[in-house]
Simulated assay, not measured.
Amino acid sequence: MVDTLGDFDVALNETLKDLGRPTVTRADIERMVGKGSAHLIHSALVHGGLRADEAARRQPEAWARYQAHYLAINGQHSAVYPGVVEGLTALRGLGLPLACLTNKPLAFARPLLQAKGLVGFFAHVFGGDSFARTKPDPLPLRKTCEALGSAPARTLMVGDSQNDAIAARAAGCPVVLVTYGYNHGEPVRAVDADAFVDRLDSLPGLLSGALAQ
């Protein structure tokens, strides 16, 4: 829903500078995002030349610095993708309860949605630290279905990456992917999904047809 690459770029590189580690490019970040902030930080440290065990030892310090930097700039370098507000408005108009499930920490996710005027669309907002495991594990999606009171087979997962599709398949949810996400630098249309849309406001039309059948 929100292109946060700019926020990642600023917060992560300021963190790496604090640690005296090499910075990363936006192209590097595109390949690293999607599995949560802890994974992003670890990947950046390894990319900069640390062994995995060395990166793990630096992780607590890095995480503390990253949190401080991210919270200071959250949403300032990001933008809502075209068609998102229109799509969410139309989905709500169909009477569908909506939940936001992201691997971003909840302390980052909820303020971002508030800043971008999106939080009111959702009955629930869950972050990467809301449950014991993160996507692509199916647990967060199953818990989200429970919160919505909806069976997984009747709960559509809308995502932008292989992580989302894997979680949906494992949880027993149908899945539609938008084509403008990062997906670790890989073509998203190569992912196993039920459908693809270029903009979120294209989705309500697909669902209206399905609901009419």
Rank of each mutant, 00 (worst) to 15 (best):
V2K: 08
V2W: 08
V2P: 11
D3L: 06
T4Y: 06
D7S: 09
D9F: 13
D9E: 12
D9Y: 12
V10Q: 14
N13Y: 05
L16P: 14
L16E: 10
K17R: 15
L19I: 11
R21D: 01
R21T: 02
P22V: 10
A27R: 15
D28P: 12
D28L: 06
M32V: 07
M32G: 11
K35H: 11
S37Q: 10
S37L: 09
S37T: 15
H39S: 14
S43Y: 05
V46R: 14
V46I: 12
G48H: 11
G49E: 09
G49K: 13
L50V: 05
L50M: 13
R51N: 11
W63T: 15
A64E: 15
Y66W: 13
H69N: 13
L71A: 13
L71M: 12
L71K: 13
A72E: 12
N74A: 11
N74W: 03
N74K: 05
G75W: 05
G75F: 05
S78D: 08
V80H: 09
Y81L: 11
Y81E: 04
P82V: 06
P82T: 07
E86S: 15
G87K: 09
L88R: 10
L88Y: 09
A90Q: 14
L91P: 12
R92K: 15
L94Y: 10
L94V: 05
P97D: 07
L98K: 12
L101R: 10
T102W: 07
T102R: 06
N103L: 06
N103K: 10
P105Y: 02
L106P: 01
L106R: 13
A107I: 08
F108S: 05
R110M: 08
P111H: 06
L112N: 10
L113W: 12
Q114M: 07
A115K: 14
G117E: 03
G117R: 09
F122P: 12
F122D: 05
A123E: 15
A123I: 01
H124G: 01
G127I: 05
G128C: 08
G128Y: 10
G128T: 10
F131K: 09
F131H: 15
A132Y: 01
K135I: 03
D137L: 05
P138R: 06
L139M: 12
L139C: 01
P140F: 04
P140C: 04
P140K: 08
L141P: 02
R142T: 13
R142Y: 01
E146A: 13
P152T: 03
P152Y: 03
R154T: 09
R154I: 00
T155H: 04
L156R: 01
M157I: 00
V158E: 04
S161D: 04
Q162M: 07
Q162P: 00
D164E: 04
D164R: 00
A165D: 00
I166M: 02
R169G: 00
R169S: 00
A171C: 03
C173F: 00
V176I: 06
H184L: 02
E186C: 00
E186Y: 02
E186N: 09
V188N: 04
V188Y: 02
R189N: 01
D192T: 04
D192E: 14
D194M: 00
A195P: 02
F196K: 02
L203F: 07
G205N: 05
G205W: 02
S208I: 05
S208W: 02
G209D: 13
A210L: 13
A210V: 12
L211S: 06
L211M: 13
